[in-house]
Design a binder for these strands. Structure first.
Lengths: 121, 121
DNA sequence: CTGGATCCCGAATGATACTG
DNA sequence: CAGTATCATTCGGGATCCAG
């Protein structure tokens, strides 16, 4: 993801760091705890391994996600939110999630929310 | 800004609504209160009127910003955050701003912050 | 063999410049 | 301001490679 070379306020920086089609969902999925690559691939609907790796890599570079590789057999790799930055960003994402829910409600789309298990059926 | 036709969680929806190079800065600038188009154009460094209008339009369509036109002379137009959605999103942006500030600090870039007047010189 | 990671390329989208 | 042209970036598919 290309960062702009100059920015006016730190907000722009962070926006650039988390822009990209899949970054928010990846982070959102990671709020549930450490996960393997293949698990993420299964859980995030429609993502390809390539996209997942690409976006994960950036999230790691910017310090939102950390990767732990365990030696031994079977091979195991875990991705998780970083305590500091990752968890903090999660707070912002929670707000956005709430806004999305309210938005759908107030636009007569409760059915979508129910269908996705966000609201009780 | 193109929205994806299907999304897994409301978060994705909101992310799509505020993606775009200038949207966060516009919202950030609007936190200070209602502003005219020309004022925004002056305050946001590097933006063209076209981009500003385009992005404002979407923010209005999605309910984050409202536009008030005052009749009379001189003609006056004001853009501001909406009470509900706009202000709520601002909370998320504030967190992101904080993350950005911390990030810059912990990467030895305090000087950038001082230069921009975010930290006292 | 399995799970993880990288490379190349065409198609779709976003941003900017230019023009009236 | 709106329309169009152009340039830059992102997305996605699929082949390929690496390591245990």
């Amino acid at each position: 993801m290309k960062m702009r070379d100059a920015f006016t306020c730190p907000l722009e920086l962070v926006h650039d760091m988390i822009k990209g089609k899949w970054k928010p969902i990846i982070l959102w999925r990671l709020r549930l705890g450490p996960t393997s690559l293949s698990r993420l691939e299964k859980d995030i609907d429609g993502i390809t391994q390539k996209m997942l790796l690409e976006h994960l890599k950036e999230l790691i570079d910017y310090g939102f996600v950390e990767k732990k590789t365990f030696d031994g057999y079977p091979l195991r790799v875990e991705y998780s939110l970083t305590e500091e930055q990752g968890r903090e960003l999660l707070e912002a994402l929670k707000i956005m999630q709430q806004i999305g829910i309210k938005y759908l409600k107030s636009h007569g789309k409760e059915d979508v929310l129910i269908e996705k298990g966000i609201l009780p059926g």
